[in-house]
Design a protein around this nucleic acid. Structure first.
Lengths: 349, 349
DNA sequence: CTGAAAGCGCTTACAG
DNA sequence: CTGAAAGCGCTTACAG
């Protein structure tokens, strides 16, 4: 059974000083004679002193104010509705602590909105920020400002190497492409082709879709690369998209599987449903309601999950622990890449 | 931003009584005039009072003493080395609280040892117990004793319907068999047979292996059942096992995949490695070191994970939250059934 | 039946 | 440079 832990009082008594002095040493607030300082530090070490976080939390008037900056969940992309759930879970657990969090969202199709929301973040003068750096340039600008103001920030969903972020919690994007490659390879007859579909207004700007594609391709041997057909669709509207799909599928009649690099695989499934196409496997990302529906019906073969709630939950917790508990988190935490099928999906939603 | 929360003091002032009286009402310690009682209750409700758990934890002298009763991790079955990790993680988080946990282990091949450890548990007179009910009869006896002593207990790894357990955290065993069925079906050519291997001294006594087998079979259509060959091996020693495997494989030369219902799939892989058999898929359970090695090398195709650390972690947390925070947990929590391959295994170990 | 007081371990001002 | 005191919100005895 764990031994009784030392308190400040114990250190004070042992050192023959008052608890105020001990506190000053422990918090490096100076104004203590060097000799007493050393003595206290030694005793604290001997006694394996660690502060009682409960008592600290109870007393502390220090309010921690956090802000999150994440995309507004558009109907188009219900992916981002999961993150607020994770944030709420974290805040509920932290309820007894004096911590507040304001959620700021931006339009994920509008860099300028991200900029103006960045200014809002700065004007709130928070103690810490959780953000998803969807727009690289704009995010770097914000991160630099935060760094200059000594405001720590954590990334979820993606990270920017060149910034001094506290930590990242999320997918290993390249590796998740490889997992997709493995699954697709498993269910595609070796004489069939594989179609990689990227859906994005401007694919070159959407970092994670590109990285997933790279990972995916890397899973296949060089001599198999001729089986892989990559196609970008820049407008997810059904009319446009279905036309594109028809065209590309008629060009590649030997397609055995379609890999959708983002969360819109249900759109491909919609199209197949309408056209009565049943012979092509679909593999995609994220447990959106529509995707899950098609996964259960068998039209989508696999979904890869990246635990959006857990990303947000852990982002908040790490920031709080850092600010309130002096705990420095691991810099990089890659969450598991979940392989989800019709038979285990029930446990992930 | 969250509004300032009401304190006992606020209720007391509003009711025109002292905090002692409020406390007596809130804790149902009686000795309060019915009229004041009602008034206080009403005000508490109006103010949405909820106790500050930090202050409570700081003050409370109430020590919580927990005990876990889990199998001793034998070399044979490293599966059970994961649980202590989850327990440690939970206890580390609970470090500032006055909670203690003693880990008691039993020999998983010896019912009698479970019995004697049960007596030890009772003699420790704990406030709560976490246990894995491997031996049904003996576990029921223990649970009944705990119930009579009003000691709450939580199950992990499996549960016994007939006991009054606080909650279960673990696998949906039947469904995990179905997931295995789906995966095996996916990688087995339709003209090949599927061998189901149960490794256990007395298979009829090992509940979860049977349930997994049932789930597995249920995934296949009636007319496919002739492809499924079930075989039990009652001694995992290599000499015996390899003989058995040789015999059964020579009887069923058309075997395309082997499904191992427990965590010993690496033993099949050992055999295949020695014999140079490469044409048969292996699917098994649990991320033991040996299994993972073969998963990475490709000899094992899939492993199904059941998150042993998380089971233990959550078991401890729920018991603590129940005893110290008055939080009643969900009775049944099925953890996700993880599909693990060579490409995503790195995130699970 | 009710109130006043002490104390959990820490932090924060203030007095010297 | 150092100590004594108040207080965070709760619980626990004790006095009346």
């Amino acid at each position: 059974m764990s031994p009784k832990r030392a308190r400040i009082k114990d250190i004070a008594e042992s050192a023959g000083v008052s608890i105020g002095t001990v506190d000053r040493v422990l918090h490096k607030r100076g104004e203590v004679a060097e000799k007493t300082r050393e003595k206290i530090l030694r005793i604290a070490k001997d006694l394996e002193y660690s502060p009682n976080v409960i008592a600290r939390a109870l007393k502390s008037k220090k309010r921690v104010r956090l802000v999150s900056l994440l995309p507004e969940p558009a109907e188009e992309s219900a992916f981002w509705i999961k993150h607020p759930e994770g944030i709420s879970k974290a805040m509920k657990e932290l309820d007894p602590f004096p911590v507040y969090l304001e959620q700021v969202t931006f339009d994920m199709l509008d860099e300028r909105d991200f900029q103006s929301k960045s200014e809002k973040i700065m004007s709130l003068n928070p103690d810490g920020v959780i953000l998803a750096p969807l727009f690289k340039n704009e995010a770097v600008t914000l991160c630099d400002k935060l760094t200059r103001s000594h405001i720590p920030f954590v990334f979820i969903d993606g990270f920017l190497e060149e910034t001094s972020f506290l930590c990242y919690t999320g997918e290993d994007i390249y590796q998740s492409g490889r997992v997709a490659g493995q699954l697709v390879n498993m269910v595609t007859p070796s004489d069939k082709d594989i179609l990689i579909i990227n859906i994005a207004k401007n694919i070159s700007n959407v970092h994670h879709l590109n990285v997933r594609t790279q990972g995916f391709i890397s899973y296949f041997k060089e001599e198999e690369h001729e089986r892989l057909i990559s196609h970008a669709i820049y407008d997810p509207q059904p009319d446009f998209m279905n036309g594109e799909l028809k065209r590309v599928l008629s060009q590649h009649r030997n397609t055995g599987s379609i890999f959708v690099t983002g969360s819109k695989s249900y759109k491909i499934a919609d199209f197949f449903e309408d056209e009565g196409i049943n012979s092509v496997n679909i593999i995609g990302y994220d447990l959106l309601e529509n995707n899950v529906k098609y996964l259960k019906s068998g039209r989508i073969r696999f979904l890869i999950g990246q635990r959006p709630e857990e990303q947000a939950y852990k982002g908040v917790r790490k920031l709080f622990d850092y600010l309130s508990m002096d705990k420095t988190p691991e810099k990089m935490e890659y969450l598991p890449i979940d392989v989800v099928t019709s038979e285990n999906v029930q446990f992930f939603v």
